[in-house]
Amino acid sequence: MAAIRLSWFSLCLLQLLALFCYFELCFSFKTKHLGLSVVGTPWSSAGATWYGSPDGAGSDGGSCGYGKLVSQTPFSSMVTGISPSLYNSGKECGACYQVKCTKHPSCSGKPVRVVITDLCPGCLSESAHFDLSGTSFGAMALPGQEEKLRDAGVLEIRYSRVACDYSGKTIAFHVDQGSNSNYLATVVEFEEGDGDLGAVALKEGSSEEWRVMQQSWGAVWKLDAGSQLHPPFSIKLTSKYSGQTLVAKDVIPEGWKPGATYRSVVNYL
């Protein structure tokens, strides 16, 4: 009987252990993934136009501050200006959307992914409107009918917020030309997942204090220290959409230069 009781007791322990391990596995999985963005909104209607050259990137950079990157990989001219209601004073710079058209005969009906890189100042602030690059507008067309679609005028489209995917690129920081030993401004590039930022902070190499940076304009964040800053600089980024935070440790090194770009080893996905 003692052997039977021991066996029954051992079985109970094993069951409890299995339950505990299952709970830990699930809990660990959930806490690991709860921080990741769950970007995705229902399809909504908007107007769409295009600007710039038919096969171009709209403008050379746009109001978000990405400069010539808009025509280079991974943006690859698949970019858009956006109405003020979606631009949100530049806080949505870097956010990604899928857009598609179905009502024009030249529409393919297939969604294409675009990145917000510019403001459409002539678009109504209360309406959703995409002023797409010629490249991204034409990408909604049936093969060979890109020109016909671009001749359609204002097009009715459907749009949905989606996660950004930059094929494994890590976040980069392009230091503004006006930066100096007391003032640092940087364009934050290639945030995967949510794509946009709610807060940015900087920590000097000689300090444990995180100093809040302010959005200067578009995707440019600045810190006007008023006294000499001591590199290397770590940058802490907080996603606007999900609140997820990550740190690019010592990403801007000693001897940094205005106009240089420094790539981190981190990203949201």
Rank of each mutant, 00 (worst) to 15 (best):
S59D: 12
G81K: 01
L36E: 02
C64G: 12
T41Q: 11
V79Q: 03
Y66P: 01
G47W: 04
T49E: 04
W50Y: 02
G67A: 09
S44F: 03
S63P: 00
G58D: 01
K68N: 15
G35T: 12
P74D: 10
S59C: 10
Y66Q: 06
V79N: 03
F75L: 15
S53C: 07
K68V: 13
G40T: 07
S63M: 12
G35N: 12
T49A: 14
T73P: 04
S77H: 08
M78N: 02
D55Y: 10
S59T: 14
Y66I: 08
S83D: 05
G58P: 01
S44D: 08
T80Q: 03
L69T: 09
P84K: 01
S77E: 08
P84W: 01
Y87Q: 02
G81Q: 01
Y66R: 04
S71E: 14
K68C: 09
S77K: 13
T49V: 11
Q72A: 15
V39T: 14
D60T: 13
D55N: 14
I82V: 15
C64Y: 10
S77Y: 06
W43K: 10
P74A: 12
P54Q: 08
G61M: 09
T73D: 14
S85L: 04
A48S: 15
S71K: 13
F75H: 08
S37V: 07
G67P: 05
V38A: 15
F75I: 11
G35D: 09
P42E: 13
S37G: 15
T80L: 05
Q72V: 09
Y87N: 02
G81W: 04
A48I: 06
P84S: 04
C64A: 12
G67V: 10
Y51F: 15
T41M: 10
G81F: 06
M78C: 02
A46C: 07
V79Y: 00
S59N: 06
P42W: 09
G56A: 11
V79I: 14
V79W: 03
T49C: 05
P84H: 03
G40L: 08
W43R: 10
Q72S: 14
D60S: 13
T80Y: 02
G62Q: 07
G61K: 04
L34S: 13
A46T: 03
V70I: 14
P42C: 06
V38G: 10
P54M: 09
L69N: 14
W43C: 09
L36S: 03
G35I: 11
L86V: 10
L86N: 03
G65F: 09
W50T: 00
I82M: 14
D60C: 08
A48W: 00
V79M: 05
D55L: 13
L69P: 00
S53F: 09
G81P: 01
N88Q: 14
N88E: 12
V79K: 02
F75C: 05
G81V: 06
L86I: 11
Y87D: 04
A46R: 02
W50A: 00
S85I: 07
C64S: 12
W50S: 00
G40C: 09
G52L: 03
Y66N: 05
S71N: 11
A46F: 04
K68D: 15
S85N: 06
S77T: 12
G58I: 04
S85Y: 00
G52P: 00
D60L: 13
D60W: 08
G61Q: 07
T41E: 15
W43Q: 11
A48T: 05
V38C: 12
L69Q: 13
P54H: 06
L36V: 04
T41G: 12
F75A: 08
G62V: 11
T73A: 15
